[in-house]
Computed example of a mutant assay.
Amino acid sequence: MPSSIARPAALAVAGLIAILPLSMVSCSAAQKALDCGNTAVRITGDLADVTQAYDNASNDSAAAGKALQKLKNDLDQVGKNSKNTDVAKAVTDLQKQVENVQRAADRNEVPDLKPLGNAAGNLTSLCTG
């Protein structure tokens, strides 16, 4: 299951890394792309942690909660720092999916992580194009 979430995000980050050296854009545009790429990397890492924690929840249920909280905190930070309306909307959508996962976990249900991965993929695709 970890690859189902991380794969779209990882592909988007790889695409960003491939195009950054080729672009001859202004410093502010390059900085924006770099910031967005860093955001994508951070969120991808958080999603991988969430997925791994839920895969191992029977061994350490507290780790799943901690991983989800870290993702929430990072999304809050990204949301506060984003000046791009499309990125801000994607962050909001991703936050909604995090809340859905949290609600399922609170009900002792196995959360569906696919919508979370799709929302993260949308965020990273905004950062690459």
Score class of each variant (00 low, 15 high):
K89P: 08
K96I: 03
A104Y: 05
S82Q: 12
L94G: 00
E99L: 04
Q95M: 10
T85Q: 05
K70A: 14
Q69A: 09
L71F: 08
K80M: 04
E99P: 02
Q95P: 02
N100P: 09
D76A: 13
N84R: 03
L75G: 10
Q102D: 11
V98K: 08
N73K: 12
V87Q: 02
N73T: 12
N100H: 13
K83S: 08
D86H: 09
L75Q: 08
A104L: 02
N73H: 14
K83Q: 09
Q77F: 02
E99Q: 14
T85H: 05
V98N: 02
L71C: 05
S82W: 11
V91A: 03
Q69W: 11
K80W: 03
V78E: 07
Q97E: 11
V87N: 00
N81C: 08
K96N: 12
A104V: 09
S82G: 11
K70R: 14
A90E: 00
V101T: 13
R103C: 00
E99V: 06
N100Y: 11
Q97A: 04
V87M: 01
R103V: 12
V91W: 07
V78H: 15
K70E: 14
G79K: 04
K80R: 14
A104D: 05
T92S: 15
L94S: 04
D74V: 10
K70F: 13
N73Y: 13
A90R: 13
K83A: 03
N73I: 10
